[in-house]
Structure formats: C-alpha cells, structure tokens
Design a protein around this nucleic acid. Structure first.
Length: 274
DNA sequence: CGAGGTACCTGACAGC
DNA sequence: TGCTGTCAGGTACCTC
C-alpha cells in the first residue's frame, strides 16, 4: 500500500509521538510477520528498549533503539502503524502490539499479512530484507541527473519496471511511477536505454516533484492508507492518471488507458505520453 | 541481466 | 443471497 510519501508521512507522525518511549511488552498475534530473528529472541531482545530515533529508507521504517539495535518494518501492501491508547478497541487485523510505559501503544495492523518486522544489530543489515540492497533515495542530493542518466543508459528494461525496482531506485511504487511518467510525457513501456536526454531530464524532475507533492499532501489514500494517528492523505485528489481509466487527460484531453505493463496495472495518456 | 509467472493473504467488488 | 473471478498501493522466488 504505502510508497515513499506515505511511509515518510507515517514516520513524521511516529517521530512526533513515540520518540523516547520505552517498549515494555510486545504482543504477537501473527508470527509470520516477524521475519528476523525467531519469535523468542525477538521478544527477549526488544523488551525494555527505548526508541531513540525513527527514520525512513526507501519504503522501510527504521526504529533506532538503545543497545545498537534497530527494528525495521516494511508495510508492504496493507500495513499500518497506529499509535493508540491501551483502552482503544483492537482492530481485527492488528497483528503486533508494542506497549509503552505510559498506556500508549504502537499497533501493527496488516490485513494481507505481507508486512514484515526485523530486529537487527546495527552491523547486520543483511538480515533486514532487501534493506541493504536498496538503490538511491530519490529526494537525496546523491541522486543526481548525471547518475540517473548513466544508470538508465545500460538498462534494456521497460522504464516502468526499472522505476519500480527498489534496487535501482528506492521508494517508488505503482502510483508515483505512473504519475511521474505522465508528468514527463513518457510511455511506461519505453526501453530505459532508448530514452532521450531531454526525456530523462523531464523524468528526473518529475519524480522529485511528484514525491515531494505526495509528502506535502500527506500521501495518497484510496481505501485504507492512513498515517500514524489514523488520518487519510489527500494526494488522491491530485492524481492525473492513476485510477482514471477512460477519463480525459488533464493535459491534452485524450483518453487515459489502463494496461498491464511490467506485471502491474499501468495508467497513461494515449496521446501525450510517447 | 531481464521477462514472465507464481506465491504470499484478505477483502472489495462486479457479474451471474 | 451467494458463488466465482478479478483486482489491489509490494516483494521474493522460480524458470527460461
């Protein structure tokens, strides 16, 4: 469900609410979500840790704990992290509850159970899913037009597939990929190494723009995305192609097409994306 | 390396 | 009402 702007929004909310809190108990209702280490060690190791800091890398959320421990959470498709009071009703799909020493709780809610939680030492990044293999952060200074051009020039994959590939670029998902390609006037099935310089430039700035706007609007909420305190985002009102099949392109009036590209449903304008 | 398929899981929705 | 099929914001894994 969440892409970079949604995860960023969730992290902002978490930072405001739970930095400095101590985890005094963890309840696990769905063991498959704990990916590393095994359940017993996870519970033993996380108990009584204080949350020093929370930050984002790609679509991963990292909780820096005392004792050089880091808890890593990936929400995948339907994951939510919600700050609740211990007296609040517990939703059916709440699979993990982190209890703090002040009656507050962090609840991991995850309808489809695809999300994963890892607890690692700060020198074992290889045990946190694909975290250590992520590509550059698209909003960082390290992600430059020059590097983007170079990286694309040797790739024969479809540009859509490449933008979704987290090892190539961290944080883009189906929505922001389609929106960026529309903004840049590029059809999603174009070969990366065949893009012209001017197109790459447009795409580069489109990615940064769309991600920043997504963050500004608190993310995109279709069915179930909410931030850490349960609020919806509003970027769904700003989307120009995603989920607008059959409607008119807001730039050129032609029809928005829905097609399967790179294994994902893809929305693009039949006229102004080439 | 890359394409294309499957799998993981649950719920919403369309069509019959 | 209820069954069946399809789809969903993500990623890992498999084969070719």
């Amino acid at each position: 469900m969440p892409e970079l702007p949604e995860v960023e929004t969730i992290v902002k909310g978490l930072k405001k609410e739970i930095i400095g809190k101590k985890i005094i108990e963890v309840l696990i209702n769905c063991e498959m979500i704990i990916a590393y280490p095994d359940i017993e060690d996870f519970i033993k190791e996380i108990n009584n840790r204080v949350i020093f800091d929370i930050y984002r890398r790609g679509k991963y959320i990292l909780f820096k704990l005392d004792g050089s421990k880091i808890m890593v959470i990936h929400l995948r498709m339907t994951g939510k992290l919600l700050i609740k009071n211990s007296s609040d009703n517990i939703d059916k799909h709440t699979h993990i509850i982190f209890k703090f020493d002040d009656k507050n709780e962090l609840r991991f809610n995850n309808i489809r159970k695809f999300g994963r939680v890892y607890l690692i030492n700060d020198d074992e990044w290889e045990n946190a899913g694909g975290l250590n293999k992520l590509g550059p952060e698209p909003l960082s200074k390290e992600f430059t037009l020059k590097k983007f051009k170079e990286a694309l020039s040797s790739r024969k994959a479809k540009i859509k597939a490449l933008l979704l590939n987290q090892k190539f670029l961290a944080g883009m998902g189906n929505i922001y990929t389609d929106e960026s390609l529309h903004e840049a006037g590029i059809k999603p099935d174009r070969r990366a190494d065949m893009l012209k310089d001017v197109e790459i430039e447009r795409l580069f700035y489109a990615i940064k723009k769309l991600l920043k706007e997504g963050i500004q609007y608190g993310g995109t909420s279709f069915s179930d995305y909410v931030n850490a305190i349960g609020e919806k985002g509003s970027f769904q009102h700003k989307l120009k192609v995603y989920q607008r099949e059959g409607e008119k392109c807001l730039r050129c009036d032609h029809k928005i097409i829905k097609d399967k590209i790179a294994g994902r449903s893809s929305y693009y304008c039949s006229h102004c994306q080439n």
